[in-house]
Structure formats: C-alpha cells, structure tokens
Amino acid sequence: MGPRSVSQVFQQFQAARTQFAQAIAELAGRPDCIEQLLQENVLGLLQGLLSDVSPTIQQNAALAVGRLASHSLPVAELVVRADLLRKLISIEADRPNRYLKRAVLTSLKSIVKQSPEMAKAVISSGGMDFVISALEEFDSGVKEGAAFVLGFTARHNLALATEVIGAGAVPLLTLALQEPEVNVRVIASSALSDIAKHSPETAQAVLDAGAVPHLVRASGNPDARLRRTALFTLSSISKHTMDMAETVIEAGIFPLVLEHAGHPDELVRKAATSLIKEIVKHSPELARLVVEGGGLGVLVNSIVRNKGENRLPAVLALGYIAGHNPALSFSVIYSKGVEALALALDEEAENGIGAAAAWSLGCVHVK
C-alpha cells in the first residue's frame, strides 16, 4: 500500500465521519427518533464528534446537541449530565469560527429555554462569558444567537435576570439595538424586555444603559416585528413606577404609540395598547395625557377590532382610566367605552377577558 492509498484511507474516514455527523444532526431534529438515538448512546458519540479535528463535523455535532436539548426538559438534563456543555463552550475557544459559534449558541439557547435550572447550568459551565463575548462579534448571526441566549436566560426569573445584568449584557444589548440588521434589533429588544419585566431594579438597569430612546425610535420602524417588540419592551419598563413611565413619555413615545394602537397589524395594536395600559395606571395625570391626546378612541377601536387575548390591554386600560376619578369616567362613557367593554364582556364571557371587562366596567363611577 503506497502513500496515495494511505491518504485515500484517511479521506474516506473523514468523509464517513462527516456523513455520520450530518445524519445525526438531521435525526436529532425528528421527535420520533429521539428515544432510539438515546438508546444508541448518541450523547457519548457526540462527545467525540465535538472534539473532531474538522470544524464541519463539530458544527453538525453542536447542531445535534441543540436539537436534542430542544426536544424536552428530560433530554436537556441528559445533555447537561453528559458534560456536553463544557465541550460545546470549549470547542469554539479552541477554533474561532462564526458558523461553529452560531451552532454552539443555538445549542445553548435550546438548553437555557427549558428551565431555570438548565439556564443556571449553562452559567455554571462558563456559558455566560462565552455568550457576552459573542454579543461583541461583528457577525450578525452570532449576535442574534447571543441575544437569544441572554433573553431566554433572563426570562425565567429575577435571579437569572440579575445574573445577566451583572455579566454586563444590558449595554451590549442596547448597542445591538443600533445595528443595521432588523433581526438583531428585534432579538435584542426582546431580551431587554425579558430583563426589564422582573422588577424596578432590572428595569432601571435598562434605563441606565440608555435603551429607551433607541426603543422609541425602533417603535417607529416599518418592520412590524420590531415595532411590537420595542413597544412591549417599553411596556416592561413603564409598568414598574410612575417615574419610569414618565421617562418613556419624555423620550417621545406620544403621539406615536396612539398611532400604533390603530395599526392594521393586530399584534402591533396589542403592543401599543399594552404600553398605554402601563402608563395610564400610574396616575390621573398620565391617564389625562392619553385622554387629551385622543387615546380613548383608539382604545375603544382596539377592543372592537381585536379578538381574544389581544383585546385585554385595551380593556384594562379603560378600567384604569375610569377608576382614577369621575371626570375620567365621564370621558370613558362619552367615548363609548362602556359599549366597547360590554361587547367584550358579551363575546368573551367564558374566559379571562370577560372577567377583565367586568372589572373595568366596575371602575366606571360618576359620583
């Protein structure tokens, strides 16, 4: 056997490994194959594939890990117990590659979204430092993956959101709001919402990073996804205190949010009315600001046009406005708000929307 034959043997070996890794990645995405794959010791095999000399094989192995973990929490727990987390994070450090980094981040996202415990396991394995460094990368796909991981981690609870803040994620996510790629801005905005929603302290971290003006600007973007995500993030900030709601107002969200409450896209209307709801609940003065800007009309229109859960923010907003004082209650009545609430009560009687409509009707008082 000559040198050419030896080389051919190794080429065949690499081709077989590549084919095998691609097949495993494909099978891992099929729910009906998961049990059989686990019985065949796929996690042990992936350990070796993640250490392969070929970046393509490593990339397919990383994708397979993510697809397995996304199947269910028990499978994600098996992935963590097999110590694949440390292997995922270390392979990219040994060989920087944007496609490999994207695959690793996809796997981490699949793991952290399963439960707070899984998110904590990623952090304990050094995953947070890896994700933060990925958010500083030039490649937009890498930035998206990093923002996804941070958002899913923070979404679980206050403690994890605090860890994300402590790692320095908020200023980087705020910078990502200024990227040219819409997808990056959408995911960064969503991650900031997942951070801000938990407490006044987490929302203050987003405020301190200077995110609000960029979010207000994003809420006027032609892309409907970015509009509604930015509006929901502003809602997550505004809901905590009157000072935070006033900060959002001072950033120029009016009259833009009132225009969005009449947007053709039902989800944009829901996002806009959610922000209005979080603002008007704080004080009669903020409620009057919405009333004087013509907000009652768009809230009533939103209740009439929207269905199901998408009606809820506008229903509650009318209740908050009417509940402040008799003068504002009269404004709700004159704007046909009572009729809109009665319609929601009639059409949504068997779910929580009907209960919310009944509560809002009870807030209308004229004495």
Rank of each mutant, 00 (worst) to 15 (best):
M1D: 13
G2I: 08
F13M: 13
F13V: 13
A15C: 09
A16Q: 14
T18D: 10
F20K: 11
F20P: 05
I24G: 01
L27S: 06
A28K: 02
A28Q: 00
D32Q: 15
E35I: 04
Q36N: 12
L37D: 00
G44Q: 11
L45P: 00
L45A: 03
L46W: 00
Q47T: 07
L49Q: 06
S54N: 15
I57L: 12
I57E: 09
Q58S: 12
A61R: 10
A64N: 03
V65P: 03
G66L: 07
R67G: 06
L68G: 08
S72W: 13
L73A: 15
E77H: 13
V80D: 03
A82W: 03
L85N: 00
R86C: 00
K87M: 01
K87Y: 02
S90L: 13
R95L: 01
P96N: 01
Y99W: 05
Y99H: 08
L100V: 02
R102H: 09
V104N: 04
L105W: 14
K109H: 09
K109C: 09
S115V: 15
S115A: 15
P116T: 13
K120E: 15
F130L: 15
I132A: 07
E136K: 15
E144I: 14
A147G: 10
V149N: 00
L150F: 12
A154R: 00
A167K: 09
P171I: 14
L173Q: 14
T174M: 01
T174P: 04
T174Y: 04
L175P: 00
E181C: 13
V182K: 09
A188P: 07
S193A: 15
S193N: 11
A196C: 07
Q204N: 14
Q204F: 11
L207P: 02
D208L: 11
D208H: 15
G210L: 14
V216T: 14
R217Y: 11
A218T: 12
A224D: 14
T229F: 13
A230L: 09
T233K: 03
T241N: 01
M242A: 10
A245G: 07
I249Q: 08
P255V: 00
L258K: 05
G262K: 07
H263G: 03
H263N: 14
K270H: 10
L275D: 03
K277I: 03
V280Q: 04
L286K: 02
A287E: 08
R288N: 10
V291D: 05
E292P: 12
G295V: 05
G295W: 00
G295L: 02
G297A: 08
V298P: 01
L299K: 05
N301H: 11
I303G: 03
V304Y: 04
N306D: 08
K307Q: 12
E309D: 12
P313Q: 06
N325H: 10
L328E: 11
S331Q: 10
I333N: 05
Y334W: 10
S335K: 09
V338Q: 11
E339T: 11
A340N: 02
A342N: 14
E347H: 07
E350K: 12
N351C: 13
N351I: 02
G354Q: 10
A355I: 12
G362R: 04
G362C: 07
K367Y: 07
